[in-house]
């Protein structure tokens, strides 16, 4: 993994994932042990789409490791508005920084960027494609709560465009997880992802309703259904309403059910769920820092030998 790129979760073996999660456990709460090693390290943040958690947690992680970040800022204040290509932009930023964190609205953007630069490229979301670092923090959260062995997960919401969903599903195929995908028919997993999951021998079932599977789930991973995916407001309201959970919904669930969400949420998890033992999404968001510290350490650190 050292000095490599993190483009998709498909590239990560179970061993790679466990290495990151183990390192994250070590650094969780005690990142200052490394301060000094990274005092000359600069991380470039290139976010072509809005981000709160991902960007801030990368920034926090790098600073907690003792390094610093340089941020391209909003697209409308950069050369992108002058028509500069991504290939040119990353070649320029490569000269300033030791690694590049890239979020971009187009699928394959991080892969393209990685072909033009020698520094590590970390994909922080490429359109409807992948979001591997979100997956690592999701897996860390699952390992801390339900555990990754003998796991049954339900993944619900916008499975078609949800990059966090695609990345998580790929990664879980390393762990023999039983995966239930719950969505309206129009937002089912892309056939490409289903094809890949079958190739990996993943155990997956698709449903249009949560009810038949809720009771057997260890983890329920909820994602936001975006208004702009629907041609009209009525259709959106109808569908979105069916894929919301409340504290009452969870009466039928196991007491140990872990409810996760990559955030931001809108209406899909009612506020009354926050007070239940199931709610894990804020802890999940906090885990972004130790997991990204671990990833940066493994990518950018000196060899131990």
């Amino acid at each position: 993994m050292r000095h490599g790129n993190i483009l998709t979760s498909k590239q990560l073996s179970r061993e790679d994932i466990e290495t990151v999660l183990d390192r994250a456990s070590e650094l969780d709460g005690d990142g200052s042990a490394l301060a000094g090693e990274y005092s000359d390290t600069l991380l470039g943040l290139l976010f072509f789409e809005p981000s709160t958690r991902t960007k801030m947690s990368f920034e926090t992680a790098m600073k907690r490791l003792g390094g610093d970040v340089v941020d391209m800022g909003a697209v409308d204040s950069s050369s992108i508005t002058k028509g500069e290509s991504l290939a040119d932009t990353v070649r320029v930023i490569e000269g300033y920084t030791d690694a590049i964190v890239l979020r971009h609205p187009r699928q394959g953007a991080a892969k393209l960027a990685s072909e033009y630069v020698d520094v590590p490229v970390i994909n922080a979301g490429d359109g409807a494609g992948h979001h591997p670092t979100q997956t690592l923090l999701d897996l860390y959260t699952i390992r801390e709560t339900a555990g990754l062995d003998d796991l049954t997960i339900g993944i619900m919401g916008d499975l078609k465009y949800g990059r966090t969903v695609h990345s998580l599903a790929y990664a879980l195929s390393n762990f023999g997880t039983r995966q239930h995908f719950i969505s309206p028919e129009s937002l089912q997993l892309p056939r490409e992802v289903v094809f890949d999951l079958h190739q990996e021998g993943a155990s997956l079932k698709e449903h249009e309703s949560l009810d038949p599977v809720l009771a057997e789930l260890d983890v329920l991973y909820v994602t936001r259904i975006q208004r702009e995916r629907f041609p009209d407001e009525n259709e959106y309201q109808k569908v979105a309403g069916e894929y919301c959970i409340t504290a009452e919904t969870l009466d039928a669930a196991s007491d140990d059910l872990t409810v996760m969400h990559p955030l931001p949420r809108v209406d899909e998890i009612a506020p009354d769920v926050d007070a239940t033992e199931h709610a894990t999404y804020f802890e999940q968001a906090h885990n972004g820092v130790p997991v990204r510290m671990a990833l940066l350490d493994l990518l950018l650190g000196e060899d131990d030998e």
Binding site: S85, A87, R106, Q107, K111, L112
Partner: peptide, 13 residues
């Protein structure tokens, strides 16, 4: 054919 693909943008790829 994917309009959302990076190769569909104005990139030298």
């Amino acid at each position: 054919p994917n309009a959302g693909c990076i190769t569909a943008a104005d990139e030298p790829v």
